[in-house]
């Protein structure tokens, strides 16, 4: 599947709204792990991040297939609270049309993708934090290549500059289990 089709279809399946750049990055991360689409991911301080995905999102926005909007701050202070800004991704009518076409001619791929994205919805409600924790935990586990305790995961996360609590690791594991990405 081409990356541009995967991104548009992801937004569509997620109810035509994905909140946060992190969320869309991580949703596509799981698609790459499940071999639905190819994109290179590298660890950044906010988790695995793909320049390919970022670039494709930019191209889709530039041709108005994908709408990237930003919430404006409610505060007037200079030092604004963390995460006050959130990007929202929706499909334009043209984007919807592209997805419709894609679904019509690529039924199996559409269903495979939908299955993964829907699990992210039912388990994590597309919450960017949970998706991010799960992507980090998956990245660590796949690097290690063998089962790890929660403590070991938390410790390894620190070496990437990621802070994870036990609760967060648990929530991450729930999602990974539902995605069949860990036992």
């Amino acid at each position: 599947m081409e990356l541009s089709d995967a991104i548009l279809t992801t937004v569509k399946v997620a109810g035509n709204r994905v909140l946060g750049r992190t969320a869309i990055q991580k949703l596509v991360y799981f698609l790459t792990i499940c071999n639905i689409v190819e994109a290179r991911y590298r660890p950044h301080y906010y988790g695995p991040y793909s320049v390919d995905v970022a670039s494709s999102i930019q191209m889709l926005s530039s041709v108005d297939f994908l709408i990237e909007e930003m919430d404006t701050p409610q505060t007037t202070g200079y030092l604004v609270p963390e995460n006050w800004k959130r990007y929202q991704y929706t499909l334009s009518s043209e984007g919807e049309e592209i997805v419709k076409d894609f679904e019509k001619f690529n039924r199996n791929e559409f269903e495979n993708l939908s299955q993964i994205i829907e699990i992210c919805g039912s388990t994590a409600d597309y919450d960017m934090n949970i998706l991010s924790w799960a992507a980090k935990v998956h990245y660590i586990l796949s690097k290690k290549g063998e089962p790890m305790t929660d403590d070991a995961i938390i410790q390894t996360a620190e070496s990437f500059g990621w802070k994870l609590s036990e609760d967060q690791v648990e929530m991450a594991m729930d999602l990974l289990e539902n995605l069949d990405l860990c036992e």
Partner: peptide, 29 residues
């Protein structure tokens, strides 16, 4: 809104630090 472009260039965000030492991605702030 251009972290994307910068990530493409060298994959590192610009990090700003407030007086408490909390870090922010400049692009987000």
């Amino acid at each position: 809104k251009s972290t994307y472009a910068y990530l493409k260039a060298n994959e590192t965000p610009i990090i700003v630090e407030d007086k408490n030492g909390t870090l922010y991605d400049l692009d987000e702030e």
